[in-house]
Write a protein that binds this DNA or RNA. Structure first.
Lengths: 217, 217, 217, 217
DNA sequence: CATGAATGAGTGTTCATTCAT
DNA sequence: TATGAATGAACACTCATTCAT
């Protein structure tokens, strides 16, 4: 079995939790111990200043297992990030089911993303600040999922244009960029200076500005 | 000649540029090469992941000179930072001369600070993000200058209160904190995602909110 | 397995040599190579002027192993010293069993110590000259063993006082100090100028003076 | 003027103080500053852990002067030691003038040497402990002076044998070795453990044993 | 005679990674 | 799957020494 294929099974998500019983592949416990160790350590310090020795000590497993299960220290981080993002995107897709209309979907999309940033500051900070400087990030699976996430928003926008909910004289990529950019813009200071953020108000504010601009009237 | 005393001579500032011809103290070229090398490297990467070997290689000088001229790698950063900040504060003080009234001074103060953040992204990013986590930062000269800068704003506010330009029922430290916090809040995303910022509009917006709150009516 | 726990197994001592076959813990050969390398180098030069590179080269192992197996260069010395001292103290305690009377025990104690100093000049020299100047020596395990050794002598003296073999009007710590000081005083020149020392005569001389002073008559 | 030729002029000795006015060669003050700096530093720490930077800082001169005036750091030490020894030997030779008889001369020789060891512990410690391990010691001028000193004693002994004061059935080198060895033996513990030594009693004791053995009766 | 600048060779130590079992 | 041992390359930093002036 290939190294990186345990991803989906490791943590329950709304989408695939029911598959658990079917999948008879057992995830080695040491694998989970390691990812948990890294997650726990990331709460306290920079990724670069976490050592493999530290990870293995916290995980209570042999250091070399990091290389059996993952592609070294950086590979471990990317795996952990991918798993995390995967879960978020899966949940997001699930949450948007049953919502009617592009505008409503976008509202939900924004709120969910803000909530996600608020909820897990550790990963959000890594995603927003750290990971972009890593060599090879733009070839990583993590980045693929981010693109998938952005593509998902894109489809909603295009859907809205086709259903005449959204103006057709703005390029969709522009709208997507505005949304994603604004979200980051809102979250960044809160993440960095560790302030609480009020997702409801923030989402409302953003949507008001956004929709007043893009809604077909 | 003592280690850290070249500060003022190394870069022209509005205040002391005319002294340049008088001051017969020669700054060793290697010292400038090293600071430039660090500045240049900081554009591309984290301070912690820059090595002394790298600095000396880029500077084209011997590694040991980093220790002759500065107090090691961190000392080098703090020196460079201090020099930069010093220049900014000197210029700021110079710029504020001849301006009448606390309100006008504050407007200039805000605009100049925004402009400064906009102008040198490398240092601003370090100042806003990196340096605060360094052990010993709050004992460093860098922090002293930051305090001097904040104290300078404080004096303007107090001057405004005494001249009855500014309400006397708000504690000055609160006003100062609001100003500095807002500036940071505005600049952070622009710095991190490297977006252009329009200092004029930003300053206007901030001043409007601020002055409507603190002006004596 | 923890760093410092090989102590007892590495070298046969009278007390635990018979356990050797039972203890299934294998001491990494590199560990022994390193200690031997240090011991060998100490014959020729000062501890401070021995480099880790030198140690690893003589040992024929990787330099980093010094840090895997021991707490750095100084830790290595203290470990080696402790092992050696431990063996000596263990043997001494064993040798004193079955001897009746405090006076006889003290005689044996003196003789054994002189013999020990005579036997391993390298360590004795370090113990008598070098180690005392090291920062942290008085917190080291080495010093703990030295204290244990001195405490052991103390107990014999007190035993002698209670059994009325030794005068009770001299403070025991004084007697202990006289014994230990005299031994050092005798051994020092022999150690430094590498002269043979006649333990039998030396012990006799010392005991004669000592016992004439402390025996209850 | 050659590097090492200021030796004799630098410090007044009984023998050549009167030459001072004649010798019109001026000793550069920086030279004296450096030697004094080293002497002063040696009181507190190991020669090996004294740096050239430290020496020059204490001396208040430029570091490179150590290489103008002396043969580097080690050369400086040897120069300083030689000067010191030279002074001692000169004084010793002067002191022995006017004394009649080999036995009397030897007594004076012993007393003076003990006194010298007692008087300047710093140099005595270096001479007795440190310098012997230095590579090139046995080719150094320092060692030449030590040999001269030993040779001087030798001549007294031979003189005593010829004048029939001393037995002629003991090889002179043996007597010399006994004297020098005994002196060292006496002084070592006092030097290392920094105890005061009573030169008069020590000299008496040693002479009693010595003369009872070598005097012709 | 004196000096500030410069340097090469090392210093102890760390760490991500590999290997043999 | 798991592990203890091993390692090469790097790390920040130091120092005796040389050089140009």
């Amino acid at each position: 079995m290939k190294k990186e294929n345990y991803d989906i099974m490791q943590k329950e998500t709304k989408n695939n939790s029911f598959c658990q019983n079917l999948a008879k592949v057992s995830v080695p416990p040491s694998r989970i111990k390691i990812t948990n160790a890294l997650k726990s350590l990331l709460k306290d310090k920079d990724f670069n200043s976490i050592t493999t020795a530290e990870i293995s000590r916290v995980a209570g497993v042999n250091e070399a297992l990091i290389y059996r299960h993952f592609d070294g220290k950086r590979g471990l981080l990317h795996t952990v990030l991918s798993e995390y993002l995967n879960e978020f995107v899966s949940n997001l897709i699930f949450d948007l089911k049953g919502i009617k209309g592009a505008i409503n979907k976008i509202r939900k999309f924004i709120w969910a993303t803000l909530h996600y940033y608020d909820d897990d500051r550790v990963f959000s900070q890594i995603l927003l600040l750290e990971v972009r400087n890593f060599p090879g990030y733009f070839e990583s699976e993590t980045y693929q999922i981010v693109k998938q996430y952005a593509g998902f928003l894109m489809k909603i926008i295009e859907e809205g244009i086709q259903s005449a909910e959204i103006r057709d004289d703005i390029v969709p990529a522009g709208i997507r960029q505005f949304i994603l950019g604004s979200i980051e813009h809102y979250c960044l200071p809160a993440l960095i200076y560790n302030k609480k953020m009020d997702c409801d108000i923030l989402a409302d504010n953003l949507c008001e500005i956004l929709f007043s601009g893009i809604k077909k009237h």
